[in-house]
Design a protein around this nucleic acid. Structure first.
Length: 169
DNA sequence: GCGACAG
DNA sequence: ATCTTGTCGC
């Protein structure tokens, strides 16, 4: 789905269903999800300027999480917002909304940022995908918060996906 | 060998 | 991810 920024008003939302043959294997999520995500993207009449993906960007063992993968495939700016860590280490950010700590690899290189998007809830893992820097990924994520743990793009996408699955039954 | 492990 | 029961805090 596409939202206008910074108003976050709905611009367009499309649906797509397709077979999923590849099993889920940590580190290889894009091979399972990307194919159908790309098909859904093709249905959009209004293409976005940047893409927020539910998953990691470069905060990945080989710096190629699904957000980076999708960005490269489409050659579009992208970044990832994940709910769980895949790799790297970090110290728990302060429980207050807006607190941020770095997510780093064994060498100390920055992989992404751990952000408390809401008071006292588990933090989010934000990392650049393709043609996007950390500052932009973090800034946009924070600007998309509306009182919930998840930023509006992924939160609403999850919501409408559930509605769509109900219609199928 | 043991622990970790996006969605 | 999906399913599902019970608990906790505002």
């Amino acid at each position: 789905m596409v939202l206008r920024f910074p108003s976050l008003e709905l611009v367009e939302k499309v649906y797509h269903t397709g077979p999923v043959e590849v099993p889920y294997v940590p580190g290889f999520l894009s091979f399972r999800e990307a194919p159908n995500v790309l098909k859904a993207y093709e249905k959009l009449q209004q293409k976005p300027d940047i893409i927020m993906v539910d998953g990691h960007g470069i905060a990945h063992p080989r710096r190629m999480g699904i957000a980076a993968h999708i960005g490269v495939m489409l050659d579009m700016p992208s970044f990832g917002v994940a709910k769980q860590k895949l790799t790297g280490s970090f110290t728990e950010p302060d429980i207050a909304k807006g607190s941020i700590n770095p997510l780093t690899d064994k060498s100390g290189d920055l992989l992404g940022e751990v952000i408390r998007s809401k008071d006292k809830v588990l933090p989010l893992f934000v990392s650049p995908g393709h043609r996007c820097d950390q500052a932009t990924a973090t800034r946009l994520t924070l600007a998309c918060l509306r009182g919930y743990k998840l930023p509006e793009p992924t939160r609403l996408a999850d919501h409408w996906a559930e509605e769509f699955k109900k219609e199928l039954r």
